[in-house]
Amino acid sequence: MGIDEVDFDRLVAGAVPTDDPQWGKVSAFLGDLEANCPPSNVSAVEEHHLAVVAREVRLVGTSRLRDHRQTVPSGVRTRFRRALAATGAAALFALTAGAGVAAALGVNPLQLLPDLILTPGTTPDAPASTTGPTGPSTADPTASGPGTPTQPPATVPVRPSGTPTATHGATGNCGNGKGEGNASCTNGNSGKENPGKDNTAKANQGKSTSKPTPTPKATPSNKGKSGKSEATPTPTP
């Protein structure tokens, strides 16, 4: 029998069951299929098809090249943006930290900005006459001290966040701690041992007018006591 179990490969090969002649016709048909149905002739359409293929090849090549170019710059742009964002964040952090330190020391950080901008790296040898980085114009008149003219903060040394010598703070050990000329080591002038600088006093002066809270020392006697200014904000007379 084997009708249902005919081996297809044997049938195609001509090895048909002898009990059923009809399988012979099927075997003959399948055996002659290749001869009766040869591969088609494509000569009539070959040129047209190859032109279509060539055009598609160009399109695919252009597309791949464009995709490749887009991926490279995007990576560079991404890294640049990240670096820019990181730099901006770091600058903002530094600025905020500096402002915080200044505020903690009783100095109006905004008054330090002109000094920071105008006097990068100048040495702090200016006498106490300087009004300091706190904006002399707004200083309390009583705090200006004896004949201390308001001078531009150009002489205030600016050393960006480097040296922690201006630790005025509680220790007041700016410079020699003597208070004279050490006012320059003012709060907010980060890192400077600025002997002879009256900045603290001026800073305090400025502060007294601009901010109710901090600071004190609007009086000349406050020179050198920079370290305390922040701690004991006394109102100026």
């Binding site: 591969p39 002739n41 494509v42 190859l50 293929v53 090549g61």
Partner: peptide, 19 residues
């Protein structure tokens, strides 16, 4: 993207595909 290669592939496959 070599045109000659595509021509060879076409001549190899097209007749049987068309059939």
């Amino acid at each position: 993207g070599a045109d000659w290669a595509w021509a060879e592939l076409y001549r190899d496959l097209a007749p049987t595909l068309l059939r």
